[in-house]
C-alpha cells in the first residue's frame, strides 16, 4: 500500500506545471524515503529529476517500492479539480492499476475522489553521478525566468559565460544581439535576492533557450535557482522544494560544429 498526504494541493500543481511541458508520461517511483521521478524529453536533450522526500508530506506510507506510471496531462487535469488549499492524498494498492486522488477542502466540508488508470511505462533511467562543478550561479528564480524569456526574443541559443566579473547571458539572431550581465551581490540582505557566483575557472557554454524556458516553469516552486556548469558537461538547473526535495533539470550543451 502506498499513501501520501500533502497539506496543500498547490505544491503538487506547481510540480506538475514544472514537468508537463517536458515530459508526456513518467514513472513516479515511490519508496519508504519518498517520491522520485526521472524522465527525459522525447528528443533526449534534457532530463527532469524530481525528489519529494517523505518528510515533506503530512502523512506518508509506502510498504514496498512501487512505480506509478502516470500520464502527466491526465494528472494535471485531475489536479485542476483541487483548490490550492485542499489537502491531497494519493493512494495506490501494491498490485493495483490505479491511483486515487482525494481532495479535502480546508473546512473539511467537501471531499472529492478521482481515480486514474496507471500506465506501463518503459523508463529510460540515466545514471547521473553527483559531482563538483566548475562554476555555480545562484540567483533569484524570477530573474532567471526573465533572462530566458527576454533573450528568446533575440535568438534560439544562449551563451552563458562565467568570469570573475559575473555571469553573462548572450543571445544573437537575425535582428541583433542581447547581453545580460549579473554581478555577484551576495552582500544583499535578503537571501532570495542574492546572486552568488562560485567559480574555479572561467567558462562559457551554449544552451538551447527553448529548453531553459521549459525549466523556468518551475519558478513558482522556489525563490532561488542554481545553475551548475562544467565545460563539456550538461548544465544542471536546480530549484529546491522547501527543505524537503528538489526539481533538477539537465540540459546537454550545444557544441560548435
Amino acid at each position: 500500500m502506498f499513501e501520501a498526504r500533502m497539506a496543500q494541493a498547490a505544491l503538487l500543481k506547481k510540480v506538475l506545471e514544472a514537468v508537463k511541458d517536458l515530459v508526456t508520461d513518467a514513472n513516479w517511483d515511490c519508496t519508504s524515503a519518498g517520491i522520485s521521478l526521472q524522465a527525459m524529453d522525447s528528443s533526449h536533450v534534457s532530463l527532469v529529476s524530481l525528489l519529494m522526500r517523505k518528510d515533506g508530506f503530512d502523512m506518508y506510507r509506502c510498504d514496498r517500492p512501487i512505480s506509478l506510471g502516470i500520464n502527466i496531462a491526465s494528472m494535471t487535469k485531475i489536479m485542476k479539480c483541487a483548490n490550492n488549499n485542499d489537502a491531497v492524498t494519493l493512494r495506490a494498492e501494491d498490485e493495483g492499476d490505479t491511483v486515487v486522488f482525494t481532495f479535502e477542502s480546508a473546512d473539511q466540508e467537501k471531499v472529492s475522489e478521482f481515480e486514474m488508470k496507471l500506465m506501463d511505462i518503459d523508463s529510460e533511467h540515466l545514471g547521473i553521478p553527483e559531482r563538483e562543478h566548475t562554476a555555480t550561479v545562484k540567483m533569484p528564480a524570477s530573474e532567471f525566468h526573465g533572462i530566458c524569456r527576454d533573450l528568446s526574443t533575440i535568438g534560439e541559443t544562449v551563451q552563458v559565460s562565467v568570469t570573475k566579473e559575473g555571469v553573462q547571458f548572450t543571445a544573437s539572431g537575425d535582428t541583433g544581439k542581447g547581453t545580460i550581465t549579473l554581478r555577484n551581490n551576495s552582500s544583499v540582505d535578503e537571501e532570495s535576492q542574492q546572486v552568488v557566483i562560485t567559480m574555479q575557472e572561467e567558462l562559457s557554454l551554449s544552451f538551447a533557450l527553448r529548453y531553459l524556458n521549459f525549466f523556468t516553469k518551475a519558478t513558482a516552486l522556489a525563490d532561488s535557482v542554481t545553475l551548475s556548469m562544467t565545460a563539456d558537461l550538461p548544465l544542471v538547473v536546480e530549484y529546491r522544494i522547501e527543505d524537503t526535495g528538489y526539481i533538477r533539470y539537465f540540459l546537454a550543451p550545444k557544441i560548435d560544429d
Binding site: H125, L126, A208, F250, A252, K254, I255
Partner: peptide, 14 residues
C-alpha cells in the same frame, strides 16, 4: 550553427 548534443552522450542508461 552549434550542434545540440543529446544527454546520452554524457550519461549511460541504467
Amino acid at each position: 550553427t552549434p550542434i545540440q548534443n543529446e544527454l546520452l552522450e554524457y550519461y549511460a542508461l541504467v
